[in-house]
Design a protein around this nucleic acid. Structure first.
Lengths: 344, 344
DNA sequence: GTCTTTTATGAAACCGTTTTCAATCATTTA
DNA sequence: TAAATGATTGAAAACGGTTTCATAAAAGAC
């Protein structure tokens, strides 16, 4: 009918001399249509510059070929890597990523998730287990499949792909204990609305408790994930409760903050102070001294979340829990505590 | 009709005792409907847990309330920041971000852009001016509004919000010239399909040429944007054409690579070698020595791209070119060249 | 108190696909 | 060769909203 630059499927069908139904099938259900017909329709579509309407397609088929991702912030190297890998994985299957961020605000999280659901995402990728009840209610009411990433839901209720934060964190602590450390400090990250941070902190306590050591309350401090906040937290620890020989950080960015402050005041790492991080961002291995940390396979998590979701959408079965390894990577920032315990 | 958990607008209308049209208007065109009616419809919708179908809405209204972003990779701190700001800006207006990445592959870029267009994005945010002809053809045929970010299209053909890479890069070079440097090396980034990198390189040449200095071809090297590649490139420069006193890097990540290698081999910055970056990522100011660089207002670019797009979509007018400032930030990594020119 | 406007609502067409369901055609079985 | 089976195709009904157009009610003009 229309002679403008936006041919519809109807136009393709007319020019190709087939019905609307056949044209539709030729383009999206290759197997059902006779080879010759299919090729003919395809060539007509290409010639006309036909571009299907995602909206119409989504409305009629009830799937949008779009996945939603609700991330805290995406400008955190580790989440950025996961986003990248996820988007890449989806693109390979003709899917697209609808991205939303909430900056660790539960109310915003519910809000943006609702928006994604209204957009008709076929699935949702979330981070962690710490979500408001409304969020979970929204999920169950909408019946949209979702994947929890980073965390593991041991209860087995939520499909998830993540790592054992607590155990990994305990492992780092053990490493420091083995080196002889007894006085610990922790720059934790923000524990509110963040189960990963709390689990990591719990892991530190696990390891210490196992050796009969208590973590002093004034040696634990919350800090937002940034280098500057890492420095600030470290300074506060030094002032508030000096005498520790090892600092365990909630992530590498915080650890970098601690290290830069040490460099600034001439504190030698690891001779005078041991520092450990979590995540294994690229910089961790490039710093001098290189940072001891836990490798979090962020890209793998993103990729897997994507492929699991795609698999589930096409009816295939996947294990509810996919636990990835999070290995301790010992580098140069951790060593024996100084012989005489001195204020660092 | 349906008693299941997914009420449609029709159900809302029926329960509220109004027509489908009125229900629709009450929910999305607040001004048109009488206050009492509107409130009533809204409360019924809330009570039923009504959730509009984005697909149906997009099909009927021909707008999806979704913007597409085509980024090279999103796991580059500077792009991550822009993505974050963009998503945030859009969310505030009820819009959502459809994200696609292409890893600097022009063919992939066309492919993912086409997918975004099929999804019916109301607008598109692209990075830089270096795109394949097919991409531009796709854009003009689809008639979807777009914004070019990072780069400035001086020709005034494309709406854009960015910074003057060339001038800013010349400015850095000038700074080093003023300090007395005459022997330069450049770790450029990958120049293929990346006008920002080429412009920055051209800026260096501009400044040098203005003082009658030539940039030796063997003192310029391409490197992918990573710390490791920055190190590798630096090593290659040292081997291939030593004798330079200043290294200008295509971005901060590369500069970090150069700096870590210097630290590793005991090369003192800036006493023996000056290093400059571009971007001003968080780490730049936290390193020791702190990195001299050009501040790229990435978050501002993202935010502005979003607000400009939203403005244009609602018919408002915006200037075609929005050029942001990219200031030189002199820190500790640049200083006078060593008195006797020695091989670094 | 009648005649225009304006404002609020409703009926129905439409957005561009997918997807039954039935019909046709070709092929295999008896 | 007729009947049965399977592979292709087509007609038309969804999918769930928005929007045009007409109408009814309310407000203002004279």
């Amino acid at each position: 009918m229309s002679t403008d630059r936006h041919p519809k499927l109807r136009d393709v069908a007319r020019v190709a001399g087939v019905s609307l139904a056949t044209a539709s099938r030729a383009l999206s259900e290759p197997g059902v249509v006779k080879e010759a017909t299919r090729e003919h329709v395809k060539s007509v579509a290409a010639m006309l510059g036909y571009m299907p309407s995602g909206a119409a397609r989504a409305l009629a088929s009830r799937r949008s070929r779009t996945l939603g991702a609700v991330f805290p912030p995406v400008d955190n190297p580790i989440f950025a890597a996961a986003t990248q890998a996820l988007a890449h994985e989806l693109a390979g299957a003709g899917y697209t990523l609808l991205l939303a961020t909430h900056e660790y605000d539960p109310a915003v999280e519910v809000q943006v998730t609702r928006t994604l659901l209204e957009r008709g995402v076929d699935g949702l990728v979330l981070i962690g287990l710490d979500h408001s009840p409304e969020l979970f209610e929204l999920l169950s009411r909408s019946r949209v499949p979702y994947e929890i990433t980073w965390s593991i839901d041991s209860a087995g209720y939520h499909p998830c792909v993540g790592i054992p934060h607590r155990a990994a964190s305990a492992r780092v602590t053990q490493h420091l204990l083995d080196l002889g450390h007894r006085e610990f400090a922790v720059v934790a990250g923000v524990t509110a609305h963040n189960d990963r941070v709390r689990e990591r902190l719990a892991g530190v306590r696990d390891a210490l408790t196992a050796r009969g050591i208590e973590l002093r309350a004034d040696r634990v401090i919350d800090a937002e994930f940034s280098v500057a906040q890492g420095r600030r937290a470290f300074l506060e620890l030094l002032e508030r409760a000096p005498g520790f020989t090892a600092v365990i950080c909630g992530n590498d960015t915080l650890a970098l903050g601690v290290m830069t402050e040490c460099a600034r005041r001439g504190l030698r790492i690891p001779e005078q102070l041991s520092v450990a991080g979590f995540d294994n961002i690229e910089l961790a291995s490039e710093m001098t001294p290189a940072l001891t940390t836990v490798h979090v396979p962020a890209a793998d998590i993103g990729r897997l979340a994507g492929s699991r979701m795609l698999a589930r959408l096409s009816g295939r079965h996947v294990p509810v829990i996919e636990e990835l390894r999070a290995e301790l990577i010992v580098r140069e920032s951790t060593g024996k505590p100084p012989a005489t315990v001195q204020k660092p």
